[in-house]
Amino acid sequence: MDISTRKVGAATIVDVVGDITLYNSPQVRKVLLDLIKDKKTPRVIVNLERVKYIDSAGVASLVEGLKVSRDQKSSFALFGLSRTAREVLELTRLIKVFEVYNTEEEALAGGAKTDASPAR
């Protein structure tokens, strides 16, 4: 799994490539918490377009990201969920908890309007 970040305007996009599992999710968690907590990034968007499989450790790491961003009053969104990733989030009843978009453009735009209703 590879993970990298890039700034687009005020938002930071985290690109994850590969599966997120028990064994590498601590890396994802670290990058997310680092961005949200230490760098105080106002909007963090996780790009899951190239994540085929995400297990519950990966999901738990995203939940932590969301929680910390709520605490910091910043925003946190996901986009590009594969069918399996979507199924995992549905199974864990989290699909409605996260702000989920289909594409990067939508995710970036969604951040502009403060009270955007997350796309399903």
């Binding site: 028990l22 064994y23 999710s25 601590p26 968690r29 519950s56 450790a57 738990a60 790491s61 939940v63 932590e64």
Partner: peptide, 11 residues
Amino acid sequence: TDLDPSTIEIM
């Protein structure tokens, strides 16, 4: 695993 205790709690 080397998961953080807070991650484990959520899982």
